[in-house]
Design a protein around this nucleic acid. Structure first.
Length: 182
DNA sequence: CGGTTTTGACCCGCGC
DNA sequence: GCGCGGGTCAAAACCG
């Protein structure tokens, strides 16, 4: 919450440029775009996006297999006395206006937790990408004041395309392969 | 029957 | 050192 920090504001286009694996606005759920009457310049349901932190490093997610438990934590974290940067993965927050908590962003998510946060009447849900090779996480919570607003925070970058993207892209890819053979 | 959600317990960092 | 707040685990329930 707060957000009083110096978080640079980005447009959707900026974020997409940074992260080509994110779903483009064109594949946002039509339902969401429909029920969003007002005219955001993109016509999507995204109110704003903010880059919370981040070193965008593709393909460098925590290689931690399944053995990474809490104590050992992710990546490299040993001492804290110094200025260990903690290698914070990229974090992006979306404010969306939707009646549905989960917006279909093309990826499949598995819920792994839910917690009540202080100063909020609603709970926060924690999701993880179902792809084993990809440990992108996201958390979702509604604003306590305006429960029609859903805050979705992505952490990390997918190291694989979503099934939906591939599905819509496969005809194109096939054609590309065919043409390249000529 | 396999994958997902639910839910309480557990763990960890941080402030006091 | 302790307690609180927040993030995660994991087992059982749930669902197609």
């Amino acid at each position: 919450m707060d957000n009083g920090e110096t978080t640079p504001m980005l447009t959707v286009d900026d974020v997409l440029k940074l992260n080509p694996l994110l779903p483009s606005t064109s594949m946002l759920p039509p339902m969401a775009t429909d029920q969003l009457g007002h005219d955001s310049h993109l016509g999507s349901d995204i109110d704003w996006i903010s880059l919370l932190s981040g070193s965008f490093e593709l393909g460098d997610q925590n290689p931690s297999p399944s053995k990474a438990r809490y104590g050992e934590n992710v990546g490299t974290k040993k001492k804290k006395g110094g200025r260990t940067k903690k290698a914070t993965p990229a974090r992006i927050a979306f404010h969306t206006r939707s009646a549905d908590d989960i917006l279909d962003d093309g990826y499949r998510w598995r819920k792994y937790g839910q917690k009540a946060v202080k100063n909020s009447t609603h709970q926060r849900s924690y999701y993880r990408c179902t792809q084993h090779t990809c440990n992108v996480k996201k958390q979702i919570q509604r604003l306590s004041k305006d429960s029609s607003i859903v805050v979705t925070t992505y952490e990390g970058i997918h190291n694989h395309p979503s099934e939906k993207v591939m599905e819509s892209l496969s005809p194109l890819l096939r054609q590309l392969q065919f043409l390249s053979r000529i």
